[in-house]
Design a protein around this nucleic acid. Structure first.
Lengths: 228, 228
DNA sequence: GTCTATATACCGATAGAC
DNA sequence: GTCTATCGGTATATAGAC
């Protein structure tokens, strides 16, 4: 699997995500016509991601958001109940979608090594396609309510559990030699994270996402596959 | 070197850092008596680090800061010219001190492997001792002016250059087998970063900083030291 | 469904008493 | 050197016209 194939399969367009959010939050959104609503929600979420990336969600004012999205203050409030709710909705829905896509790809293969490869690649390709979204999920967690912060951490651990499980499965089948599955999984996650937290580092050096994926796989396998 | 020894040697107290900042910013600070100034600056910086860690620098109001530090609004403004300047001063001074300590420790040893070990350990021990400070440096970069953002990225690359140089030195001396020094250095940095960005992950699992350091060293060496 | 105009509250920053 | 009181500006959020 390369990035292009992944991109075709995943079909993660901002529009699809907005449609999903619309259907799950009908009660919070005053607009009833789906087509009208989705069209404007795309504008709102894209503007939020862009402005949050530039200066952070807290520093972004709703006037900034109106200017960037093209809506008025009154218009905006037909789509969101409050600034805080905008953050919550985007956070919950974003992390949900990411985890679903990872799990779906994992089902395609069976051997532990294939599972390791596809999960690393899916994660990287996904964060490449949704880089602002991933950046947003990471940076804005602390602005959530205490309760949602807790749920967010649990979500992070769910992703990490995918890696822990496949590492331990590989250890049971004598394919991997694992001394500490939790630390190894944490290391993989940290390497995944660097790709979307510091994209400038890799783009400046001309490293493609495929090259980075191969590097991470090689690094991890040299540690867990003895005398290779 | 273990964490306790490092801690004794480094002598990085918040008070020493504040004294340094006071001496280098005498023109910006209205208070002239060093002892009085340093005492209150400790309060201000500690409060800023704590509140920024909780809710972010932007979301922290100066009234929050006054409550937490015990100073009044008027009193606070005798120490800082503006909220923005507080951020700049802490960012510049914090990253400067961190880089200096890393470089100082690096001079203590000569062989590439020792250099790798001591740099990883210094970095981790330092970020353990100054965890809120490191977290602050990472999370608040985007709130800096464009010019300071650029300087901050250059600083990050300076640290990474330490790793690149020692990896390449080891490759020249046939101790390491390096296929891509830049990516390997970036990976090390990403692993360093996870320690202070997600401390809850490691403390919950009871992983000490020494254990984490050993794990990172083992992971990296299995990749760069062939058939070990 | 979308706009303009406005209400209300709180922000960063300062003046002036002590 | 530190405080209280207050300024002007701007934030989120809403009311009501179209």
């Amino acid at each position: 699997m390369n990035f292009e194939q992944f991109s075709k399969n995943a079909k993660i367009s901002i529009e699809e995500i907005c449609r999903e959010i619309f259907r799950q939050n009908r009660d919070l959104i005053q607009i009833k016509k789906e087509e009208v609503a989705v069209k404007n929600m795309v504008k709102i979420f894209n503007a939020t991601l862009k402005l949050s990336h530039q200066k952070g969600f807290q520093a972004m004012t709703l006037r900034d958001l109106c200017r960037e999205s093209g809506l008025s203050m009154g218009g905006l409030y037909a789509y969101i109940p409050s600034k805080e709710a905008l953050l919550s909705i985007m956070h919950i829905q974003g992390s949900h979608i990411a985890l679903e896509l990872l799990r779906r790809d994992l089902l395609k293969v069976t051997s532990p090594r294939e599972k390791l490869h596809i999960t690393i690649k899916s994660h990287l390709f996904l964060s490449q396609e949704m880089s602002y979204w991933f950046y947003f999920l990471f940076m804005e967690t602390k602005n959530l309510s205490k309760e949602l912060q807790k749920r967010s951490i649990e979500g992070e651990q769910l992703t990490e559990k995918l890696f822990i499980d496949l590492l331990e499965e590989g250890a049971r089948k004598k394919i991997f030699s694992i001394s500490n599955a939790e630390l190894t999984a944490a290391a993989i996650k940290a390497l995944m994270q660097d790709w979307y937290l510091k994209p400038w580092k890799y783009s400046r050096r001309g490293v493609s996402v495929e090259e980075y994926a191969d590097f991470v796989i090689e690094l991890i396998e040299s540690y867990i596959i003895p005398e290779k």
